[in-house]
Amino acid sequence: MGGKVTCTLGEVKQRADFIIYWGGNPAECHPRHFTKYTIMQKSKFLPRGRKDRTMVLVDIRETKSVKAADIFLQVKPGKDFELITILRALVKDQAVSDEQIAETGLTREVLDDLVQRMKAAKFGCLFFGMGLSMTRGKHMNSAALLTLAAEMNAFTKFVAMPMRGHGNVTGADVIMRWQTGYPFGISFNRGYPRYNPGEFSTVDVLVRGDCDAAFIIGADPGATMPQPAINHLKRIPTIVLDPHVTHTSRLARVHITTAAQGIGAGGTAYRMDEIPMPLKPALKSPYPTDEYVVRRLNEAVAAKPFWLPEGKVPPMLTAQV
């Protein structure tokens, strides 16, 4: 679980009586989250379903999710980290000045009420979305929120969970953690995995122009990344694996069409709470699966000499300790 204080969505469905969505819009981005797991379900511990649960939404603007919320806190854009830090202080009865609270766009009454509700809950759950983790502060915001969840456990059961988009992005974290020990932003250029987001994370690598070839699978950076990153993808040989000819395919040297996961290709995908789900492909795709193509690529690369100038695998990489 990468050290975070978390649980499965099953536990949330059965037990969570206090739910906070922070920087996310589940009504439009994860439409079944409310009904399947968080607020509408009745359970042994919450027999009255929605009536037994309180839902708080923290966001910078009113979204469609506001309608489902009991309490909506409109935080000033870019002030999430400050608000989380203030909450962490209030939870521990530490002094916070009025100016500091005013900076977040909220009032002391609202925050005191929130802290009191958080402490009174039997099982609290913080879901955080890209509105928190991709804005000013980035991973520091996520870290602060995870710390708040951990610290709340001095009073009651509290957990946090990221609202992951994009199908199997959770699986990518899990597989990389399993295979390399790190979840993303990894370099193998010394022959062993090293982790350093900022240095090895894709946007930074592309904007600086560090890499001299790119292999893109199940993603479309040509449509989502900043222009300098796209310009670099155009400069270098790019290889794309995708069920469609995407924006990235158009600027790539090589595009290979593959079967869509869960529709033409079987396998496993991870849910956002890190539960693996088997896929049930309905259709027989005329295209090969990603797995088959990448395995063929691995075999083709293995037939070539090792990437060091000597063309041999150094003994330090194969020696067993």
Binding site: I175, M176, F215, I217, G267
Partner: peptide
């Protein structure tokens, strides 16, 4: 210095091959 990026819309089996 090749870059391998993405792995969201694909299966865990393919992700393992990417690693």
């Amino acid at each position: 210095m090749p870059l391998i990026y993405g792995m969201s819309n694909t299966t865990c089996e393919a992700q393992k091959e990417c690693a």
